[in-house]
Design a protein around this nucleic acid. Structure first.
Length: 464
RNA sequence: GGCGGGUUGGCGGAGAGGUUACGCAGCGGAUUGCAAAUCCGUGUAGACCGGUUCGAUUCCGGUACCCGCCUCCA
């Protein structure tokens, strides 16, 4: 069996991956807060962990991997957006606006991530459907002395978890010295974080032992991971920005609530996305969504290939030039594998590259090698392992049109021109074809016309 | 201020303590009426300074610069 090696953030080293149960490999990845379209940065963990999911399914079997990715549908950003909508004239009750907003955003998210070739996770729990599990976990933490109630809030007592800060390499004392933590009067310690907070009547809330309220952000992942994957599971993933405090807090909660379990054994973090060399942010004006790119005609498959060209542990720069180059590569590969039956197994070199800490760039180099060697069937099966070339002649490629009559006419014109030495007619037709986005291939053997990236059937009307 | 990541040829971007990454672009050639496409060939790379070593771009230490997280945005 292929042995997989993964860089474990927890130990800061590349380790052999050995699942607790090879018949059920379990992975949890932090999903989106659903209040708006996913931006391009949101796509990175999706593509990275989808690739890992595919690799795990390949190695352990498609039915032996459980991949859980949550939807955070209770959050103050959602409440704020809903309040905006109401202020803008939406007369429905807040809860209804929120349900509609989150439902709609989840639909968008699915559509956008599907376009990137990402498989749906095995389970996609919504936080609001697991409030009971969260309350139960908080009760356990309170009972165990790891949490305390203050002014309707329940707070996690960071000092009660000795290893707090280990994942992110921080010490509690250093962080307090850094003083960039919210000071709230009801906290015993500035680093203590909220497990439960009270909701006023105009906010969503659930009844709890501490009154009507809503969960803090971190508890949902702990509760849902526990319910769906157990006390101990294999992989926990997410963006590096979540390492602290989110994942640190998850660990503290989970380990304290279920000391018998080890929570996640391998922690994986993807580095951040940049755009044209700068952080993507609204203030820099380089902020855009996956849907924006798709609408501009950048195919999801192209986005995926660009992402996979950079190792997940490195910052990745999105540039228009990369998208252009990736599209050219995919065009070539598609023309090579169309109508070819994929090989039963992917190439061992590609699997080996992926198994080496998800070396997607190395795997792509192997795909190039297969393409150069004319190994179309292996190229297809190997690319598919990475979620590429999954579709024959996808929509974004030029439609298959019959240009044979035009080719014949051009061939005839050329034959005559060869005799008369007057190529002006031939050149005129050739430029017209090129203007319509057709690639003109003339050789001794004959004339071949291939629709290119800018193919425009309308411009061919003049030639008919 | 605390923590973490990075610096590879014109550009993008990997692996490996000693032997071609790979892709794009460029250059030379084949081919072509001319092109395009295709094929063949082609690169003086490894921020800087030390150390370890027979040998380092690859390991260790330091310096510089860049980036991220700690703060609503992943």
């Amino acid at each position: 069996m292929t042995s997989i090696r993964l860089t474990n953030t927890r130990t800061r080293s590349k380790e052999l991956f050995e699942p607790l149960d090879a018949s059920n490999v379990r992975m949890y990845v932090c999903g989106p807060t659903v209040y708006d379209r996913a931006h391009l940065g949101n796509a990175r963990p999706v593509i990275v962990f989808d690739t890992l999911f595919r690799l795990l399914r390949h190695v352990f079997g498609a039915d032996h991997v459980t991949y859980v990715r949550n939807f955070t549908d209770v959050d103050d950003k959602i409440n704020a957006r809903a309040a905006e909508l109401r202020a803008a004239g939406d007369a429905r009750p807040l809860e209804e606006i929120i349900r509609d907003l989150t439902d709609c955003t989840i639909e968008w998210y699915h559509a956008d991530m599907d376009a990137l070739g990402a498989l749906r996770p095995t389970q996609e729990p919504r936080a609001t459907e697991w409030i009971g599990a969260m309350i139960a976990m908080i009760e356990q933490l309170v009972a165990g002395g790891h949490a305390y109630e203050r002014d309707g809030h329940v707070l996690f007592r960071v000092r009660s978890y000795r290893e707090y800060g280990r994942l992110s390499g921080r010490s509690v004392d250093d962080m307090i010295a850094g003083a960039r933590v919210e000071i709230a009067p009801f906290k015993e310690d500035p680093l203590d974080f909220v497990l439960w907070k009270p909701s006023s009547d105009d906010l969503p809330g659930w009844n709890s032992p501490w009154g009507r309220g809503r969960p803090g952000w971190h508890i949902e992942c702990s509760a849902m991971a526990h319910e769906l994957l157990g006390d101990s599971f294999d992989i926990h993933g997410g963006g590096i920005d979540l390492q602290f405090p989110h994942h640190e807090n998850e660990i503290a909660q989970s380990r304290c609530a279920h000391p018998e379990g080890g929570f996640a054994r391998y922690w994986m973090h993807n580095e951040m996305l940049q755009v044209e060399g700068r952080k993507m942010s609204k203030s820099l004006g380089n902020f855009f969504t996956v849907r924006d790119l798709l609408d501009q005609g950048v195919p999801g498959e192209v986005i995926r290939l660009v992402f996979l060209q950079t190792h997940y542990s490195r910052p990745m720069d999105w540039t228009a030039e990369k998208a252009r180059a990736a599209e050219a590569v995919l065009r070539r590969w598609h023309s090579l594998v169309d109508d070819i039956e994929p090989a039963p197994e992917p190439a061992p070199e590609v699997v080996a590259a992926l198994a080496d800490d998800l070396n997607t760039a190395g795997a792509i180099a192997e795909l190039h090698a297969l393409a150069n060697a004319g190994q179309a069937a292996l190229l297809k099966s190997s690319a598919r392992l990475m979620g590429l070339l999954t579709q024959d002649r996808p929509d974004w490629l030029a439609p298959k049109v019959d240009l044979a009559p035009l080719a014949q006419r051009l061939a005839e014109m050329r034959r005559k021109a060869m005799e008369t030495k007057d190529f002006s007619e031939v050149d005129r037709m050739k430029s017209a074809l090129v203007a319509a986005g057709v690639e003109v291939r003339m050789s001794r053997a004959g004339v071949e016309l291939v629709p290119g990236p800018d193919f425009d059937a309308g411009k061919l009307q003049d030639l008919a």
